[in-house]
C-alpha cells in the first residue's frame, strides 16, 4: 500500500470526527451488536484510506462512505469464514439496544422501545433503507446512489418498509397485551 501522508491522516481524523457517530448508528442498527459496530466503523475509515483513489470528488462524499460501509458490513470476517450480518446477528442473539434506558419509564418511551424491537425484526434491506433515510437523514437521491437504484424505487421501498414495520409493531404490541 502506498504511503499515506500526515495530511491525509489528519483529513481522516476530521472525517472520523464528522461521521463516526452516524456510521456507528448505522452499523449498530444493522448488526445490533455494539462491539461489531465499533469494529466496523474503524474498518470503514481505514478502508477509505486504502480505496481513496476510488473517490470521485464530483459525487457526494457520504454516498461513497456508505458504499464502503455496506461493503465492510458484508465482508466482515470472523475466524477466517465469511459471516454476513444476518448470520452474525443470529449468533449474537442479544440486541445492542436491549439495555434499558431512562426513556423506558414513560409510556411514550415504552412505545419507542417497542418500535426499536420492531425495527430490529425488520428484514435487512427494509431496515437499511429506514436507517439511511430516517437515522442518517439522507435524501432519497443519495440513498439511490448508495443502493444503486432509481430515486423513485427508493421512495417505494421506503413506503413498503414502513408498512412492514407497522405490521411488526402491532404484532409486538398484541403479543405484549395478551
Amino acid at each position: 500500500m502506498a504511503r499515506v501522508s500526515a495530511g491525509e491522516l489528519s483529513k481522516l481524523a476530521v472525517l472520523f470526527e464528522r461521521h463516526h457517530r452516524a456510521l456507528f448508528r448505522y452499523f449498530v442498527s444493522m448488526s445490533r451488536t455494539r462491539e461489531m459496530a465499533e469494529d466496523l466503523v474503524q474498518d470503514v475509515f481505514f478502508r477509505m484510506l486504502r480505496y481513496r483513489s476510488s473517490y470521485d470528488p464530483s459525487r457526494p462524499f457520504t454516498a461513497w462512505m456508505y458504499q464502503i460501509a455496506r461493503n465492510a458490513g458484508i465482508d466482515q470476517k470472523r475466524g477466517g469464514e465469511v459471516v454476513g450480518i444476518e448470520e452474525y446477528m443470529e449468533r449474537h442473539a442479544e440486541p445492542a439496544s436491549s439495555s434499558p434506558g431512562p426513556e423506558e419509564h414513560a409510556s411514550r418511551g415504552q412505545n419507542l422501545n417497542l418500535l426499536r424491537r420492531a425495527l430490529d425484526r425488520l428484514p435487512r434491506d427494509k431496515r437499511e433503507i429506514l436507517v439511511l433515510s430516517r437515522f442518517q437523514n439522507m435524501k432519497y437521491e443519495q440513498i439511490g446512489e448508495i443502493l444503486g437504484c432509481e430515486t423513485g424505487t427508493v421512495k417505494v421501498r421506503v413506503y413498503r418498509a414502513m408498512r412492514a414495520l407497522e405490521q411488526i409493531y402491532f404484532a409486538l404490541e398484541k403479543e405484549k397485551v395478551s
Binding site: H20, R21, F24, R25, V28, S29, R34, A37, E38, V41, A96, S97, G101, E103, N111, L112, L115, R116, L119, L130, R134, F135, Y159, M162, R163, L165, E166, Y169
Partner: peptide
C-alpha cells in the same frame, strides 16, 4: 405511518 415515522426520528441514537 406518519406517527411511526415521527417516532422513528425520536429513537435515541446509540452512542459509541
Amino acid at each position: 405511518l406518519g406517527a411511526l415515522w415521527r417516532d422513528l426520528g425520536a429513537l435515541p441514537a446509540e452512542q459509541p
